[in-house]
């Protein structure tokens, strides 16, 4: 029952049962821990990854359904932390505890892929899937706007 898929450009195989949440496969089996466990219920967005280029809650995605798919995690969006969204995140000093920020960044990258110049309202709507308990939201908005100029 092995599942083969592509993770950050590399072909990988998971031996976890098909119903296993992708989150745990990525973190514990394939050992990429940038993707976080927050709620296990698709409510907080800490586990956000991209599947075939669009964002998905990895805690709500069964690994068995990933056969042949392309998955990107925070570790895969750039080689040297130089994605415009990552640069903007540091320039605006967004992170505090940082735990939710991988998910925030994955959501933001997803938004800017689909909408190169989102309005403030569009940013807020898109990003409201992701909880930040440190309340870094205002800086996230600024960082997305900053990154939009560069993307």
């Amino acid at each position: 029952m092995a599942t083969k898929f592509t993770l950050n450009g590399k072909r990988v195989t998971s031996s976890a049962p098909g119903a296993t949440p992708l989150l745990w496969v990525i973190r514990e089996e394939l050992k990429l821990t940038g993707t976080k466990f927050g709620c296990g219920a698709g409510l907080c967005g800490a586990c956000m990854v991209h599947v075939n280029g669009s964002r998905a809650y990895s805690c709500q995605t069964e690994v068995g359904s990933m056969a042949g798919k392309r998955i990107t995690t925070i570790e895969g969006i750039s080689r040297n932390s130089d994605h415009p969204v990552q640069k903007a995140w540091l320039a605006e000093r967004v992170p505090q505890c940082g735990y939710c920020q991988s998910g925030q960044i994955m959501s933001a990258v997803d938004l800017l892929k689909k909408n190169k110049s989102p309005t403030r309202e569009q940013i807020v709507e898109h990003m409201s899937t992701n909880i930040c308990r440190c309340g870094t939201y205002q800086r996230i908005v600024k960082a997305v706007q900053r990154a939009a100029k560069e993307v």
Partner: peptide, 8 residues
């Protein structure tokens, strides 16, 4: 902070 934007 730099390690908080790349999951490291």
């Amino acid at each position: 902070l730099p390690g908080k934007v790349n999951g490291s």
